[in-house]
Simulated assay, not measured.
Amino acid sequence: MWTDTHLHLDASEYDSDRLEVVQRAQVLNVTRFVLPAVGAFNFDAVKRLAHDIPGAVYCLGIHPVFVDRAHDNDLQILQQKIRESLNDPKFAGIGEIGLDGFVPGLNWDRQVMFFNAQLKIARDFDLPLVMHVRKALDPVLKSLRIYKPRSGIAHAFNGSFQQAEHFLKLNMCMGFGGACTFTRALQLRRLAKDLPEHALVLETDGPDIAPEWINKQRNAPEHLPRIAQTIAELRNVSLNELSRISQANAVRALPALIHST
């Protein structure tokens, strides 16, 4: 059994595909899905999708790439939606939040303001995180040390071993997916191979970060078992053992996954 700890499903696409994306994955024993929001405009859609998909949970948050188009009162909307969701077993935490130093033209100060405000919300409600961390590992760690959230996942991790150790000390797991399948991704493959077993969870980030065999095409959770095979070979463990490791870490990072049906 596999958990895709990071899957984006657009609402209109989901309706037109009539669950085909999820059904293809379920045939391959991918049975848990984490659906993060990216802005106030899709909070309700993500929640609805999670309730329509067996095994799915959802997170609510404002993505750093979307903060320039967000309104300041979206943070109040986020808090209200969280309050409304606290008793919802499908609600897993705050995400996707973080910092992005890669996309040109983003307002860095506004990113930091939204990130820190959402970390404070996570602390106040004692909620886990799903984080976007791209070319911004040290600034993210700086904020995490201040707000000390309970747990979470640094999605698509691509830092150093030293940075990984700091995330682990802050009770964060790191997400690994399709990028690990490229033989030229030497540092990333070393991380997937050598990090301690309590460090990693599996993800697709579908429809993004496609694995090598569908490079530059649309990614989907049906590819997670083959991605897992690559990581299992790197770690010299069986697929069953990697499944056990990833499942345990995903549940520790996002406890709502325990009860997702």
Rank of each mutant, 00 (worst) to 15 (best):
L137T: 15
K120H: 09
K81S: 14
I62R: 00
P64N: 10
D138H: 08
K120L: 09
S85D: 14
R69F: 09
V57W: 02
A122T: 02
P104S: 06
L78E: 04
G55S: 04
K81F: 10
F66C: 12
G101E: 04
E84I: 13
I97F: 07
D124N: 15
R123V: 02
N73W: 13
Q79F: 07
V130M: 01
Q118L: 01
L137N: 14
G101Y: 09
L75W: 13
G98V: 07
Y58E: 03
A70C: 14
V57D: 09
N116W: 08
V130L: 12
V103D: 02
K120A: 11
D100R: 01
C59L: 15
H63N: 14
I62G: 06
F115S: 07
D68N: 15
I121P: 00
Q111Y: 12
K135Q: 08
F114N: 01
G61Q: 07
G105D: 04
N107S: 11
D72E: 15
D68K: 08
R123P: 05
D138F: 02
D126M: 05
H63L: 04
G61V: 08
P128C: 08
G55P: 06
V57P: 02
V67S: 10
M113V: 04
L99V: 02
K81Y: 12
D88R: 10
L129I: 12
I97G: 04
D109W: 00
V67E: 05
M113L: 12
Q76R: 15
G105M: 03
I94M: 06
D74L: 04
I94H: 06
Q80M: 10
K135H: 07
D68C: 10
D68V: 02
F115Y: 04
R83Q: 15
K81W: 14
P139I: 07
D109L: 10
L86C: 11
H71G: 13
D72R: 13
K90P: 09
L129R: 02
P89A: 02
P89W: 09
L137W: 01
A92V: 05
I62E: 01
D109Y: 00
V103T: 12
F125R: 10
G55Y: 00
I94A: 07
N73S: 14
N116M: 03
Q76P: 12
E84H: 14
D138R: 04
N116A: 02
M113H: 13
N73Q: 12
Q80Y: 09
L129N: 10
L78I: 05
N87I: 09
L75V: 13
H71W: 11
L119E: 06
F115V: 06
L106P: 09
N107P: 06
L99I: 00
N73E: 15
V65L: 11
H132R: 12
P64W: 03
K120D: 06
N116Q: 12
N116G: 02
A117N: 11
I121S: 07
A117D: 07
L106N: 03
D126Y: 13
A136N: 13
F102L: 06
M131Y: 03
P89L: 00
L127P: 01
W108M: 01
I77H: 06
S85K: 15
L86H: 12
L99S: 02
G98P: 04
Y58R: 10
H132M: 08
Q76Y: 14
R83G: 09
M131T: 05
L86F: 11
E96L: 05
P139S: 01
Q80F: 13
P64M: 01
V133F: 06
M131V: 00
G93E: 04
